[in-house]
Amino acid sequence: MLGMLFSILIFPGLLFVSVFGLSVEYIDRKIYARLQNRLGPPWFQPVADLIKLLAKEDIIPKAANQNMFKLAPLFALTAVVTAFLYIPLWNKESLFSFNGDIIVVLYLLTIPTLAFFIGGWYSTSLYARIGSVRSLTQLFAYEVPLFMGILSSALLAGSWSLKEIINFYAGHNWFWFFNLLGFAITLVSFLGKLEKTPFDIPEAETEVVAGSFTEYSGRLFAFLRLTLDVEMVVGSALLAAVFLPFGFSLPPVFAFVLFMIKILFIVSLISLLRTIVARLRMDQMIDFCWKFMVPLAFLQILINLIIKGIILR
């Protein structure tokens, strides 16, 4: 019981994932700044931002629905921190592994988007409402290639549990190489989930102020920012576990360090992508997702089915 509480609250739960999320935010911002040929923020910047926001006044608009407005950020943060518990960090099995946990992680990663929608909608500000409707519209575009990309890897392994998938790729060395197309698709759709630059239409500063976060201030906004950081960690960890499934048979410490390096590699890919591209319009984004990403995801599934039918028979 005590051990379970420790793993939920401290390691690898809330405390560890928050600290790791903040450091990932620093790395993301630093890479972004260096690629723009500037110095970038100092190492303590995300921590200072978080403490400052926690100590600021909480304003709740009179017209807003009090409960929904307050609960949405907490729901979002809880969902992403819970999702992290199902990802294997230092061996082939996560702490609470069961058959179908990959679906649970994907489902828990969808909740923050819905929470942003609910929080933005019930804050009754016009900008927040436009932003939240945009984030929901976007959800229907990137979610399909994201699920197809991740599940194509599971299809090759023939299982919906992360443990079985990692076991399969440990038995079939270099088979993860066939999934590189799926990896690219998932990475790009994941930018939409994180609301990062090519797909940051919901919180486009030049159009809708700050999207669904417009009315949030103080502590609640701090939770929302932390949610986005942790979501980045969880998503990168899921991608690392599914698409780069090697090195889990090493001794736990080395496997853990290797896994962290993999996460940081995926985070730097995300920062690189968000630096080199500009924001799309909503219709362009939906066109891009349905016309290019979904057919490519089908191609990936086809490749995996052919490999499964010919090589693995």
Binding site: A33, G40, A48, F213, T214
Partner: peptide, 16 residues
Amino acid sequence: YDLERFGIILKGTPRH
């Protein structure tokens, strides 16, 4: 001038 060195960010909404 890179004001992010000092942690300064331009925000769109007075709430932030």
